[in-house]
């Protein structure tokens, strides 16, 4: 059992380390005004999150966060920065008090809530003995798929995933509606390419 306890302790330490890195990066993002740096930091933020997920046995979430949060989000953000501006203006000082109050209120509420939350990692907590445990127990018999996350995602809660697919679809649709297909600029670019072919 000592090995387990050692493992547990080292997990806790690494977890604390990662979370403090997240905290520092969050503060840095709040202070920075260079949007490029902000976007890059947010990408790294996602990567650190991904590492943390894998540390706490959420491999699927970690993978997704790395691909979606660190990869796709950063790419889209960079595209948007290219089209808009590179720097943010400094915020007005007095404008920060209201948000601060909101955050303190929400944070206080959450900390109040944690006093009755089960201890972190408790295998007997309601969350970990409820439906979640049932999935682990019945999954193999029901679906024959070893990865429980996959079977919950696609089968038990397949309708959620359908909704999620719709959300992605809407996002694509919305961006196309707002910005066009890119086809107009495609035609332009093609013309330019042709010109370049001819001129030199």
């Amino acid at each position: 059992m000592t090995g387990d306890m050692m493992g547990e302790a080292s997990t806790s330490i690494i977890s604390a380390l990662l979370l403090s890195i997240l905290f520092v990066m969050g503060v840095a993002i709040a202070h920075l005004r260079n949007l490029f740096a902000i976007v890059m930091l947010s990408g790294i933020y996602s990567l650190v999150c991904a590492a943390w997920y894998i540390l706490v046995d959420a491999v699927d979430v970690g993978f997704t966060e790395a691909a979606v949060g660190a990869g796709m989000s950063t790419a889209v953000l960079l595209g948007a920065i290219l089209l808009t501006s590179r720097n943010a203006k400094p915020e007005r000082r007095f404008a920060r008090l209201g948000p601060l109050a909101v955050c303190i209120a929400a944070g206080a509420m959450l900390i109040y809530a944690t006093s009755d939350l089960p201890a972190a990692g408790d295998p007997a907590s309601p969350a970990n003995t409820g439906v979640g445990l049932t999935y682990l127990q019945i999954n193999w018999a029901d679906t024959g798929v070893p990865n429980v996350v996959t079977s919950v995602l696609a089968s038990y809660r397949g309708f959620d995933t359908l909704g999620e697919t719709l959300v992605v679809f809407i996002a694509g649709l919305a961006v196309v509606l707002l910005l066009g297909f890119g086809e107009r600029s495609l035609a332009e670019t093609l013309r330019k390419l042709k010109k370049e072919d001819k001129v030199p």
């Binding site: 006093s115 009755d116 089960p118 970990n128």
Partner: peptide, 29 residues
């Protein structure tokens, strides 16, 4: 927070457990 206290996401299920959880702070939050 509710899931942490009840272990389920089904509304009727949560409702069933609610009377026993009225003092639970995470439920209130």
């Amino acid at each position: 927070l509710l899931y942490a206290a009840t272990g389920t996401l089904n509304m009727a299920d949560i409702a069933e457990q609610m009377p026993g959880l009225s003092g639970n702070r995470s439920v209130q939050a």
